[in-house]
Design a protein around this nucleic acid. Sequence first.
RNA 1: GGCCCCAUCAUCUAAUGGUUAGGAUUCCAGAUUUUCAUUCUGGCCAUACGAGUUCGAAUCUCGUUGGGGUCACCA
Length: 460
Amino acid sequence: MVVTRFAPSPTGYLHIGGLRTALLSYLWARRNNGKFLLRIEDTDFSRNDEAAALAIVEAFKWVGLEHDGTIEYQSSRLAIYQEYAQKLLDSGKAYKCYMSREELDALREEQMARKERAKYDNRYRDFTGTPPEGREAVIRIKAPLEGSITVHDGVKGDVVFNVADILDDFIIARADGTPTYNFVVAVDDALMGVTDVIRGDDHLSNTPKQIVVYDALGFALPRFFHVPMIHNHEGKKLSKRDGATDVMMYKEMGYTPEALLNFLVRLGWSHGDQEIFSMAEMLELFDPSDINRSASVYNVEKLDWLNSHYIKNMSNDKLCELLEFHGVMLVSHDKREILLDALKERAKTLVEMATLINEILVRPAAFDEAALKKGYKEDSKVILEAFAQALKNSTELHLPSDYHHVMEAVVAQLEIGFGKIGQPLRVALMGKLSGPGLDSVMAIIGVDETLARIDALLKH
RNA sequence: GGCCCCAUCAUCUAAUGGUUAGGAUUCCAGAUUUUCAUUCUGGCCAUACGAGUUCGAAUCUCGUUGGGGUCACCA
């Protein structure tokens, strides 16, 4: 049984980097018919954790991830941590330290002055005397004093840490009794039965500490996969400052979950030359051992490309449904199919698509100056009048091809090129010189609206 | 600064020690299109540097440089 977990701290939203590790954990669990657990790391009590958890679940729901079991809140597991801390105390693997913060700070300063690594000096490690008056004790775990700790990492390989370089008897419970991060992570992962820890490689240097806890408590170690960070364009860890870190903002911006997941799974992982991965394919192919060791840069252009790919290949029903979020209601529009077919190849995002739809459906409020100058010449008026007349004389105008035939006839009759009619007509219909095929536009808005728009330009 | 990690086109990446170092995105050009976009075709662009091992190195070893992460009674 493979059990993975996603363990964010409650920031109020799901971070894009978080979504990636969540996705990878999810894929690996599902691929092995295992479990994917969700735990909120809220040992510092400073935020509204329920709301934060909800935000994560909402984002999960949007992209189609689902966690198993109930959400674990560390804040409601304090008794458990106390129990295990007590066990360590009882077995002599941890001890109370009565050093004050002032003393600790002083020690650190001293060490820094000597250019030494700041570390606890073990002064209470074997303390048996009477504790100083009125001091709240912290609990420190007895870390090994020499030798090394090796993290067998599924991504990075074996990483060896020299105990003397990195460890000291670190605090597992604060003076107020609350537990600290490296302690609770190890306890929770062990108790929740997590077999595969997939997380950002910024946690790699925490891992030896967690291993110390595992060992002290006699827990079996999970497999570790430390996946490289996603960097911004400056090559730094992605942060709020880079904008667009909240997953739900991608929904706002008109990205599809499929594109976003496809984009994220390809950051640091690949399968030959394949670029497009459905959820089913990811589930079939993803293996955390195949993850690259190096960080990757977050690059929006590829996301855009993927997004346009998924929009292009989406059914109109689905598209219609998604567009509603962006304020476009098309369910009852009789020319819906023509409209969506004409536009889905042109839009990179659903927001763009919504804009394009409105540009067609809503009569242009004004004609673009440059377009007028370039597309509406002296002879245009006559041509447009002829075309309008031809439309009036036609019956049974429904499909784009019907309108195309009328255009062809007018062009032949006047012995002019397509551009002569296309440009002014485009100005009339769209108010500018770019847009989808004119025959499609006319089919969508219908004869009456087409004539009205031509008329508006002629009277302009 | 200590410790740890990393290093192939601008970006994401591929390459049993033997390839003209491949694909994708971006960009550029051409074709298609009444326009723009799409699509298609083509093009530009990379093994950080230096040693070593080897008949042969992007690939193995060492060093250099560069980048990143982490060093709390935060998570």
